[in-house]
Design a protein around this nucleic acid. Structure first.
Lengths: 341, 341
DNA sequence: GATGAAAATGTAACCGGTTACACCGAAGAA
DNA sequence: TTCTTCGGTGTAACCGGTTACATTTTCATC
């Protein structure tokens, strides 16, 4: 088990020492059954002794396959993206692929740079978060025949496959839940729609439902903020501090919803007695909070697995990626109730 | 701006069309100042027209450099690792490196497989979480001259560089804070020490401080659980439901601490009046919770950046990695107070 | 105009696997 | 015996850049 030389061995060295050709060593490692048992054992013994680990770079270069898949998420600090990333990674790992993760930090410039890096790395597929981006990027990927799929956002363009759920409809449903309880003045806390098409779609769903219920949209009850607990708390304080505060808050993500919940409690507004709160994402913590937080369950894990699987199939079998809309549904919990009086 | 051919171009094609040698094209792309302005522009125009993106695989293969760094974390679902990962990634991205993330899911077997994959990929460096693992892995990396650094855990072995903080001391300090407030019966909720050396070190720190204060260690007040809010809640319920419940809980991570906080409140135990709670990690949410949660600040971001920087320097300048212990410190907030009576 | 240094460019070997194709020998079929 | 088949193996081209070294061009200086 000691290393013969201090330099890592190469396939040719192993071949020489085993008295066989490089092709045989390559085969012994990649398709062991295609080599006689005797030869195989001699080779594997040498491999172990030299601690030989084949160079995936050279192998990838020679075979024109890298086994790499790129994933672009805005951030993994947000638990929901972390869970999503983990599901993608698990699935790819199982399929013998490696995951290259890149954080775009909600910056289009950074995202564009990263896509170029991924193409350089000759990834075999790319998973995007959200669909709004410069079309040049999609063209670049097509030119290099790299399949891609959009997640977290449905794309209007049928040529851009999306495995996702309907943010607009989900936000509309959450808003409807509040309206059906009797709320007429509803605040909205969400991400920055300028850099986040999910936030934008959720706002649109919120407004559409208000309109459907013939309720006025009051911009003073809306806050677009970064995804931070503290931002959610600050936004809730601001909205609840207005002259005519709403009786309910729709937070387009659970991180901000938790911040809002804490802020309301600190302000002495009981939830749900004085103000109802509904979130979005269904993070594990919402179930445990006091009171448990109503939310919208998003199929983060399912979406990640489906996207990874679809990409692997596209690479392995040339199967085109079909757009799919998964289900997101409102989860009613104790943080929402009919308004007082 | 249209692509001439439908096949992605190669360096040789660009060279032929530009009427120069491949070396010149390579230089024009990698060190533009080493080529005359005229030639450079002609080449760059062709590069743009063909949408040429150099093949990093071939480049890496030729130059024996991949620009890849591997990061092994147990999971990124835990916010603190997500923040850590993000800081590593940001730093590496700035240094022109790409990050290969792998989740070990607290499994030694999986970790071992992944290290092999990373060596195959010829990563230029590896960042580990925790130090407890089969020495064969460290030997393998040394044999391939791949620098590595351990984070989140100090290593006893000086040959294994660690950029970390002292879990034992930090847990001891947190426990001491509770004891100094007057607590004599303290519960402990933490991760699974069997698969997590940080958890193990924190338990040890907890016990050491009890001993220093001449307090008995009561195993019925200790719960080792996976890192989930729900687990923290369940553990707190169990511990607070015992015949002689503790007056304080030390949770060795904030996720479980939040679960414990919610559970205590649900049980009608006011925090900190009936029970004090102190966490570990200083997640953003602890600041906003009701009451704000005392915790131990860990230098997750600093550690990630320092580890990434050290690795880059080791690769670029052959500078050996020095072990460093960063500061972790107790943050007092309203969730802890002197016990009643 | 000759000279030498510096700048710009070209030539070709090389990185370490993969794989199409050729080849050989043994077993089974005719 | 001869032909066919097939498992096992070898040969060598190939993937697309990088880079050491050689060569040519440019330009300031004497």
């Amino acid at each position: 088990m000691t290393d013969e030389t201090s330099q890592p061995a190469t396939l040719r060295q192993i071949a020489r020492e085993a008295g066989v050709s490089v092709a045989t060593v390559s085969r012994a490692l990649r398709r062991p059954e295609s080599v006689s048992a005797q030869t195989r054992e001699r080779i594997l013994a040498l491999v172990a002794r030299h601690r030989y680990v084949p160079d995936a770079l050279a192998a990838g270069f020679a075979s024109r396959r890298t086994g790499l898949v790129g994933l672009m998420v805005p951030t993994i600090s947000n638990s929901i993206y972390a869970a999503f990333t983990e599901s993608v990674q698990g699935r790819l790992q199982a399929a013998g692929r490696k995951l290259l993760i890149a954080n775009t930090n909600y910056s289009a410039t950074l995202e564009s740079e990263i896509v170029h890096k991924l193409v350089e790395s000759r990834v075999e597929g790319v998973i995007f978060t959200g669909c709004r981006r410069d079309g040049v990027l999609y063209e670049l990927l097509r030119h290099y025949r790299i399949p891609f799929v959009v997640t977290w956002s449905t794309s209007g363009d049928p040529s851009i496959p999306a495995i996702s759920f309907d943010n607009f409809a989900a936000a509309k449903a959450a808003t409807k839940t509040l309206i059906q309880l009797g709320h007429r003045r509803i605040g909205l806390i969400c991400g920055l729609s300028a850099v986040n098409d999910r936030a934008q779609q959720r706002i649109a769903g919120f407004r559409a439902e208000l309109e459907a219920a013939a309720l006025a949209f009051d911009p003073t009850l809306v806050a677009e903020r970064p995804f931070e607990v503290a931002e959610g708390a600050a936004a809730a304080e601001a909205i609840m501090g207005t002259a005519r505060p709403p009786t309910a808050l729709f937070c387009a993500n659970d991180i901000q919803a938790l911040g809002a919940l804490f802020a309301c409690q600190r302000l002495g507004r009981a939830v749900p007695r004085d103000v109802s709160i509904i979130g979005f994402d269904d993070l594990p913590m919402t179930r445990i909070a006091n009171p448990p937080l109503a939310t919208v369950h998003v199929p983060a894990q399912e979406m990640g697995e489906a996207a990874a699987d679809a990409l692997v199939r596209a690479v392995d079998m040339g199967e085109p990626i079909q757009s799919r809309a998964l289900d997101a549904k409102v989860i009613t919990r104790d943080s929402i109730a009919a308004p007082r009086g």
